[in-house]
Amino acid sequence: MALLEVKDLKVRVEEREILHGLTLTVNEGEIHAIMGPNGSGKSTLSHVIAGKPGYEVTDGQILFKGEDLLEMAPEERAAKGVFLAFQYPVEIPGVTTMNFLRTALNAQRKARGESELMVPDFLKKVREVSKSLNIPQDMLKRGVNVGFSGGEKKRNEVLQMALFEPSLCILDEMDSGLDIDALRIAADGVNALHSPKRAMVVITHYQRLLNYIVPDIVHVMSKGRVVKSGGKELAQELEESGYAQFEDAA
């Protein structure tokens, strides 16, 4: 079943069109990789799906589980099951990670008409997940991402993904700024979350990440469009021949 349907999407930022009619369908349980050179519109796509302000959709639509995603506020999208793992997770001094996680989880549950998670249940869940991601407990007592290394910030994103249990995870350049060990831990965390009901969209510039998170389908973006889609071998092909051929094609 189609989870995410992006249809002929055109997006502007400050009068400049970034996406020129992008179409993409992601079904439940699939892992998609979106690759492309800098400036091809990969991050713009992820921001528009998450509802970041500053983007003007001039044409096309985005359906999530059949509903019009563009009509929803960012927090509604989150409650419905859309999760964007940020390329650069922000630091929030003064808000402990634990407080943030509980507030966010309960806000999502409330929006779905579910009861708030009791504190002991919540703590148990956080402890389990953070242990599997190699996140020390004292990190959870610090301000959100404050003083975290690049790897810790990305693991914190994966921790949230595990807690909130979204049905669509968009990983925006998860590999940026990570060394190989940090990348492996984060990727293992993501792989552990893969399930038949949950889809992943992995946005990356490099093929390297796809050695750890193996996609079912690879899309190549160039100049605001998907210019080619294929199996995981397409990523390998790109690694060898580069993006130039597609830039010409677009």
């Binding site: 998450a50 509802g51 506020a73 989150a78 929030i92 407080n99 943030f100 507030t103 989880l105 806000a107």
Partner: peptide, 17 residues
Amino acid sequence: FYLKARGLPEKQAQALL
């Protein structure tokens, strides 16, 4: 935006900050 993307409504996100 980060807080809203994690499910906090505007006023609640403001309150936390």
